[in-house]
């Protein structure tokens, strides 16, 4: 038992890893073998075999914490006393909160749309060109960088130094401004533009995901479709607009949805760049601040629940898409 829990040499660790994967394979194999009796086993047993382990993990890891969060949102900061809707009331009466909500809306609308659009256009443009692999690797690069690294990278873009003799700009953008004779700007200081500058960072990070997925989708468009369009005299932008985009619609929905949800949850961009100051905070950042900086678990929980609520429209949209595609099928 001890051997399975404590590994302190590289060999031991890799052995443990192999055992874990093997163990997992054996368990799953056993389950699947047990349900693999085509006629004799009722459907629910098969479903349980395929879904059971997953649902178990999800219930323990996500559903239970989510439910206790919902419960916690009705309790005070230490979780001892039931205070009804007070936490929610506090969120919505706080004077700064409209700004937070507005910012969140801005993020969740702009990031998925712009990221997907950019990713799509770029994927389309570099598709089957000679430098495709390199071109994609460049845009994918930010995905491989940790949040900490991204924070530093963008600091060197937005950093401000006054326009004085003997003082050099450190931020790239301000250097460019100075070069064309404009006063350097405090990019992160002035609301509401600063939120846009933060959004740029998020778009920069996520574009690689959108580009990769959409590029694959474009490549999967059957050639006969493209060929038929070409024979009809469609080309260039028309092709993009009337053939490519409609053909990869499901992929677009997937990308939009995924990025929208990631954006709703994201807070580290805001935290590392402005700390939520200067009117840049978003709901997820407020949640983190309350729950883990100020130990106000009740209020933090209420903010988390608000995130659950904000995602409902996205889910509803996806359910609709699901229904539509089921109908077609």
């Amino acid at each position: 038992m001890e051997w399975l829990l404590e590994a302190n040499t590289a060999g031991h660790k890799f052995a443990l890893m192999a055992i874990a994967i093997l163990l997992f394979a054996v368990v799953m194999g056993g389950i699947l073998f047990a349900v693999d009796r085509p006629k004799r086993v009722p459907t629910w047993v098969v479903v349980a075999g395929f879904l059971g382990p997953t649902l178990l993990l999800l219930v323990v890891g996500l559903v239970y914490p989510a439910l206790s969060t919902i419960r916690g949102s009705f309790y005070d900061k230490t979780g001892d006393e039931f205070i009804g809707l007070d936490n929610y009331a506090r969120i919505f009466t706080d004077d700064g909160f409209q700004r937070v909500l507005l910012n969140t809306a801005l993020w969740v609308v702009l990031v998925p749309l712009v990221t997907t659009a950019l990713g799509l256009v770029y994927a389309y443009l570099v598709d089957r060109t000679r430098f495709e692999s390199l071109a994609k690797a460049l845009v994918f690069l930010p995905m491989a960088i940790s949040m900490v690294g991204a924070g530093v990278i963008w600091r060197f873009v937005y950093e401000f130094r006054p326009d004085q003799p003997g003082v050099n700009q450190i931020g790239l953008l301000n250097q460019l401004l100075v070069l064309v004779g404009i006063e350097p700007q405090q990019f992160l200081l002035t609301a509401p533009a600063n939120t846009l500058y933060l959004i740029v960072v998020m778009i920069w990070i996520q574009a690689g995901f959108a580009m990769t997925v959409l590029s694959a989708a474009i490549k999967a468009i059957p050639d006969d479709v493209v060929e038929a369009a070409r024979l009809d005299g469609v080309g260039g932008f028309q092709m993009f607009r009337y053939v490519t985009v409609p053909s990869i619609r499901p992929a677009l929905v997937v990308v939009l949805t995924t990025i929208a949800i990631v954006t709703l949850k994201v807070f580290d961009v805001v935290r590392t760049m402005t700390g939520g100051n200067f009117g840049t905070s978003v709901v997820a950042n407020e949640f983190y601040t309350q729950a883990f900086r100020q130990f106000n678990f009740g209020l933090g929980a209420a903010l988390a629940v608000l995130l659950f609520v904000l995602v409902v429209p996205i889910i509803a949209y996806n359910v609709r898409q699901l229904r539509l595609s089921e109908e077609i099928r």
Partner: peptide, 12 residues
């Protein structure tokens, strides 16, 4: 704010 800008630059 010596070498750093105006009053506002103190905040950033």
């Amino acid at each position: 704010n010596g070498g750093l800008g105006d009053v506002q630059s103190v905040a950033s």
